[in-house]
Design a protein around this nucleic acid. Structure first.
Length: 831
DNA sequence: GTAGCGGGTGTCTAGACAGCATGTC
DNA sequence: CTAGACACCCGCTAC
């Protein structure tokens, strides 16, 4: 089938496709067209990765828009939203506007109603429905990308329920579902009332095989000699072998540590194959990576990348990930060792994919659990770059012949598992039943069950009464916690229930937060007394503890790495204990109740906050910490004999301490080291805490609790990552935690100071960056922000070179800081 | 004395969505 | 209670 044979497309599109080099549709695409995707028919395309699924969706959306409709494209990851948007924007010349809506990036609700295509995550769509976004009822076409994700126990139910609601709102909605090849595509298609288009066809050949001994055996019966030298490793040999043919490799492993370790080893392989030019480019890239963050991960990654290897996992800062992905696509980085982040994320094809680890630790399972066939297929599907490679190779590794045979059985010859709905689980139903009631989709138990009856779960359950039973349990939970009123047959959401639904909180999180805040209100006086009472002895003890903890470091080193504010004098008071410890500070400044730590702990123990893992020794550390900070915690410490609850309490405390460190301006580097996390994890925790504290603020406001102010301040502090005295400054555009601290130390303590203080002092505090200083002053509302003719106050040029590297990135606008004479001067001072 | 090794022991374990209102270093 | 990779330490050996 040729583009001009496709019915229903907007004028000019077929020509545009042809001029874009598309002569002939891929077979699955043609099949979808025959099934009527461009004529409003619902279709489930169950085809391999990289076989043109997105294009099927595009055809459907374009034709839908042409008929005057509006299309929604649901992505599984935020990172994919912008990728898809960019892809769809090529249709703008045909009058098709594209908008994106995700949690962190929103083109405002109303503006979206003027878009023809909207890209959003399933959670965002769910949230928009809960908040009655008007345009949702205008939809004529919805695309569900990676629809097999309904199989995911955590996020699957959201997709499932959201599709159900969209179809209920728009009775003639066209559903285009895109899925990897799964075991029960017919069943899924039936659920969606869609025509199934199933195919194994791929644009590039994929050879799958297992490496064992000195060769890879492929599924087509061929073999390839890849000898493993003595002391050498399979992975290294396979990467070198690919490089001999100038191909790149993607290595999937089962833990972050393994990803890093593999990259460290593989860099010695890739280093052999680099040209001089590549070395130069990689050196630049390595520097860019170092500039992203001062955490150790950053250095490790940079060292690997400099030699042409990289690792990729969720502990990396998103900037790191982006740089690695881009460099790999540009073939500059020759190999990437990755956890599954890369298998599901943005498109990063590779000549050869090596699935090194096919088992992963699973605490619930109690040991190493084999990966799902679907997941391994997803990884293997990354092999082969269209237009660049003659074919892709996916290789599993076996140490003995039995394993080789098992791997063939288990993954190469096997079909992917069937997709199973995970809806009938309490956590999923808790949130979705409340939302269903709150947004008026049902107002009786029967109505709820009827709604649930249209889900995938209902079509495939083999345990009839289950859904009904869980529904009753959940309804009871919601009623007990005051989120719904049940009056005979009638179910309605309470005011707070509506709020919880709209805030997109798990009702259990909301209940935990409300309990905690009410508990705080009840115990306020008592706890404040306790805090004041112990503060003296506590302070002394805390100070000596900190002394022990820090004893291996010199004060100077600590200052450089941690950038603690007291480094340059906490306005006059130079007492030994003052200078030493953070806990003292907390007790002195957190006069408010609840304290920041208390609130951090509260939100950290909700099910919406992903728990930090307790390492060996952590149990003791945080048990002690728990009793020490007990007056601050909002609720009664569970008994140590209640193992699970106590452990969760401690784990939440660890998270809370991380957040507290962040709001005490402890350096990233130090936080990563102290909590055994990556820079990406800090961002994640901070983001979640911000969201949950925002929700807590709303709940407190609605329940008229006195803690609103404390919650708001804690939220602000998390947002900016600063102590309370910097809140005013950090709120100024262009001023973050570091600049705020510098200004504060230079005596610029408030926004008003920025407007009135001596410019030379400000300039010095911002280390002579005129452009930066000007924009900061402007943002602060100073009348005369110009920095012309201002001399930098020479007396105080803190750490001019220490952070120079990270400063470099804000020259992106070409403002020319580099030839600023002051900058040269401060460099000179250092040398 | 030291680099390189083999073996025993202890440690640790993937990912990532959401409110609201605007902008980090 | 389950599994596997790796870091780390120890002691040995070959130079």
């Amino acid at each position: 089938m040729r583009p001009e044979d496709v019915p229903g497309l907007p004028e000019g599109v077929p020509e545009r496709l042809q001029s874009g080099g598309i002569e002939e549709l891929y077979p699955p695409q043609a099949e979808a067209v025959e099934a009527g995707v461009t004529e409003g028919e619902s279709v489930l395309a169950s085809v391999p990765t990289a076989s043109g699924k997105t294009f099927i969706a595009e055809l459907a959306m374009l034709s839908s828009v042409r008929r005057g409709g509006k299309a929604l494209y649901i992505v599984p990851l935020r990172a994919l939203a912008s990728e898809k948007k960019a892809e769809f924007e090529r249709w703008e010349e045909f009058g098709v506007d594209v908008g994106v809506s995700t949690g962190n990036y929103e083109s405002s609700g109303e503006w979206l109603s003027s878009r023809d295509i909207i890209v959003a995550t399933s959670e965002k769509v769910d949230s928009l429905i809960r908040n009655n976004a008007g345009w949702v009822s205008d939809l004529s076409c919805v695309v569900a990308d990676e629809v097999h994700l309904v199989n995911d126990s955590h996020r699957g139910p959201t997709l499932e329920v959201t599709l159900g609601k969209l179809r209920k709102i728009n009775s003639n909605l066209q559903v285009v579902a895109l899925s990897a090849t799964v075991g029960n595509a017919e069943e899924v298609a039936e659920w969606l009332d869609a025509t199934l288009v199933q195919s194994e066809w791929r644009p590039i050949d994929l050879k799958m095989g297992v490496h064992y001994g000195n060769a890879i055996s492929f599924d087509d019966g061929t073999q390839r000699e890849v000898p493993v030298g003595k002391g050498d490793r399979q992975t290294s040999a396979l990467v070198a072998d690919t490089l001999d043919e100038e191909g790149s490799s993607l290595v999937f492993v089962n833990s972050r540590r393994n990803a890093e370790a593999a990259a460290k080893r593989l860099k010695n392989v890739t280093a052999e194959y680099l040209t001089g030019e590549e070395r130069g480019e990689l050196a630049e890239l390595a520097q860019e990576i170092r500039d992203v963050s001062d955490a150790e991960t950053s250095d490790t990654l940079a060292n690997c990348v400099a030699k042409g290897a990289a690792f990729h996992h969720a502990g990396l800062a998103s900037e790191h990930r982006r740089l690695v992905e881009e460099a790999f696509r540009d073939r500059l980085v020759k190999t990437v060792s990755a956890t599954p982040t890369l298998a599901a994320g943005v498109n990063t094809p590779s000549r050869r994919v090596i699935v090194r680890d096919w088992q992963r630790y699973d605490g619930e399972f109690g040991g190493m659990k084999p990966l799902d066939v679907l997941e391994v297929h997803q990884m293997m599907g990354r092999a082969g770059r269209p237009g660049l490679d003659p074919y892709g190779e996916a290789v599993l590794l076996a140490k003995d012949s039995e394993t080789r045979d098992e791997l063939f059985e288990r993954y190469i010859w096997a079909d992917a598992e069937p997709v199973r709905s995970k809806l009938a689980a309490e956590p999923a139903l808790r949130t979705h039943l409340l939302a269903t009631v709150a947004s008026g989709f049902a107002h009786t138990r029967e109505g709820l069950l009827e709604f649930l009856d249209r889900t995938l779960y209902a079509t495939q359950t083999d345990e009839p009464g289950r859904l009904e039973r869980v529904t009753d349990t959940v309804l009871q939970y919601l009623e007990v916690n005051g989120f719904v009123d049940i009056d005979g047959d009638d179910i309605s959401a309470t005011a707070i229930g509506h709020t919880v639904s709209r805030l997109y909180l798990d009702p259990m999180s909301a209940a935990e937060i409300i309990d905690g805040l009410e508990w705080a209100a009840d115990h306020r006086e008592e706890k404040l007394r306790e805090l004041a009472g112990v503060s003296d002895s506590e302070a002394r003890r805390a100070a000596s503890d900190a002394g022990d903890a820090e004893s291996e470091e010199s004060a100077g080193f600590r200052r450089a790495s941690e950038m603690v504010p007291e480094a340059d004098g906490e306005s006059g008071d130079e007492g030994e204990g003052e200078r030493e410890d953070e806990n003292v500070e907390a007790l002195e400044t957190d006069r408010t109740y609840p304290t920041a730590l208390g609130l951090f702990h509260l939100v950290s123990r909700t099910p919406d906050m992903y728990q930090l893992y307790l390492k060996s020794g952590d149990r003791e550390t945080y048990t002690e910490e728990c009793y020490e900070r007990e007056p601050e915690l909002l609720g009664n410490v569970p008994s140590e004999y209640e193992d699970v609850r106590f452990e969760e309490w401690l784990s939440a405390l660890k998270t809370a301490r991380l957040l507290e460190d962040w709001t005490r301006e402890v350096d990233e580097d130090r936080i990563t080291e102290r909590y055994g996390v990556g820079p990406g994890d800090i961002r994640g925790k901070v983001e979640t805490a911000q969201w949950l504290l925002g929700a807590a603020e709303r709940l407190a406001g609605e329940l008229d609790l006195s803690s609103v102010v404390a919650v708001r301040e804690a939220k602000k502090r998390v947002e900016y990552g600063v102590r309370d005295e910097l809140l005013d400054l950090a709120g100024v555009r262009g001023v973050g935690r570091k600049r705020a601290r510098r200004l504060f130390e230079a005596g610029i303590e408030t926004r008003n100071d920025l407007r009135e203080a001596d410019k030379s002092v400000i300039l010095a505090a911002l280390r002579g960056r005129r452009k930066t200083a000007e924009s900061v002053l402007e943002a602060a509302g100073r009348r005369d922000p110009s920095m012309d003719d201002v001399d930098e106050d020479e007396a105080d040029v803190p750490d001019a070179t220490f952070e120079r590297a990270s400063e470099r990135t804000d020259r992106g606008d070409g403002s020319g800081d580099a030839d600023d004479p002051q900058e040269q001067a401060s460099l000179g001072d250092f040398g």
